[in-house]
Simulated assay, not measured.
Amino acid sequence: MPAKTSRSTVQRLLPSPTPVRFVAEAGTAVTAPGGYAEPSDELLREAYRRMVLGRRFDTQATALTKQGRLAVYPSSRGQEACQIAGVLALRDQDWLFPTYRDSVALVSRGVDPIEVLTLLRGDWHCGYDPMATRVAPQCTPLATQVLHATGMADALRRKGEDAVVMAFIGDGGTSEGDFHEALNFAAVFSIPVVFLVQNNKYAISVPLAKQTAAPALAYKGIGYGVPSEQVDGNDLVAVLSVLAAAVDHARSGQGPFLVEAHTYRMDAHTNADDATRYRDASEVEQWTAADPLARLETYLRGRGILRDEDVEAAHAEAETLAADLRTRMNADTEPDLLELFEHVYAEPTPQLREQREQLAAELNAQED
């Protein structure tokens, strides 16, 4: 006879029927849902500071792309609350597995902005040291990073480390088989990994309605026994509260957790995309009114947590960051063609050594 599942067990897995929120679009407080604690005032001030820095980094990177300094740049303007909250919910020993759109999260995590943009400049596949930063390389193929994140979390658990792994993924990535395999494996083996779905409504040009018939992506967790939640992704207070609870859940040995954050990509998919071909300007305007940065600032000012000098200091720091980024990105780099052979294997194969020597000889001949 098949085992019976209690109603309470099923209810425990289900997300809230509507996205969790603490702050309305106008920046006013709403009745907070039970079970979630509001972050401290100090943490919210720090979150605001990081959101200002992230927004300025994003606009500067977009400008550098138009100037030809980057090959491509996928803007995350409008999704900062998800990325900043994700970083703030983690400890130093935890790992982050990002997608190609999560550059703001990397900067917030402390990765040098130049090293963040190295991939998008075309210099290296990954410009920073993942082991030193505990940030995996930004992943361009959809959803493959969630399997990597699950494997890393399993390895850390087996080693006895007090660490949680958070994997970022877009709504389009949830249509990939890797996403479902990762959820199933993580649930079966009770692995300490948090899956954060940034549902920005489009997989490039494909709207959510053409990707899934589920009432929300968060409901996909129940099929694998993964507890889930959905949250207003433009409400940083709510996202940080929900993710903190999800990370605590995973760290305490209760296994994986799935969070769907409802947000919006204000800019095009990348600088190579024409978003006007698949969405109306009125839709963008509607979501612009729900800007996560403006919403947080209004809320914090209203509560007396944020003062004029705090806002000015954050924007001044952001301009310094942008100026430094411009200066260093405008410096031409000298490519070293022999770097092609580095990091292919820990120990180069005889064939790689032979190819490297052949290329070195050809380069030396050109110089002569």
Rank of each mutant, 00 (worst) to 15 (best):
R277H: 08
M329G: 03
A322M: 02
E334M: 11
R77S: 14
L119V: 01
A250N: 08
Q198F: 03
L43I: 03
C82W: 01
V116P: 08
C82Q: 01
Q67H: 09
P215Q: 12
R69E: 15
L243Q: 04
F57Q: 09
Y299R: 09
P137C: 09
R121N: 07
T212A: 08
A314G: 05
K4N: 06
E283L: 15
D324K: 06
L217V: 03
T320Y: 00
V72W: 09
G173E: 11
D112I: 12
V239R: 06
G233Q: 06
D92L: 00
Y202V: 11
R101D: 04
E161R: 15
E181V: 05
I114C: 15
I84Q: 07
T144G: 04
G78P: 03
A290V: 00
R265I: 14
E319Q: 14
L13I: 04
A37F: 02
D92F: 01
D112V: 10
F185E: 06
A182C: 10
D274H: 08
R277T: 11
F168E: 02
V247F: 03
H269D: 13
L64R: 02
A71I: 07
P141N: 12
R109T: 06
V87Y: 07
C139A: 14
L359T: 01
K220E: 03
V10T: 12
V104K: 00
V226S: 05
R301N: 03
D178T: 07
L13V: 09
Q60A: 10
Y36F: 15
M166F: 02
A323Q: 12
D112P: 03
A261Y: 07
L88D: 01
Y219W: 12
F189D: 10
H249E: 06
R7W: 03
S252R: 12
R279Q: 07
I169G: 00
T59R: 14
T118M: 12
Q83K: 02
V107A: 02
R77V: 08
V72S: 06
A322C: 04
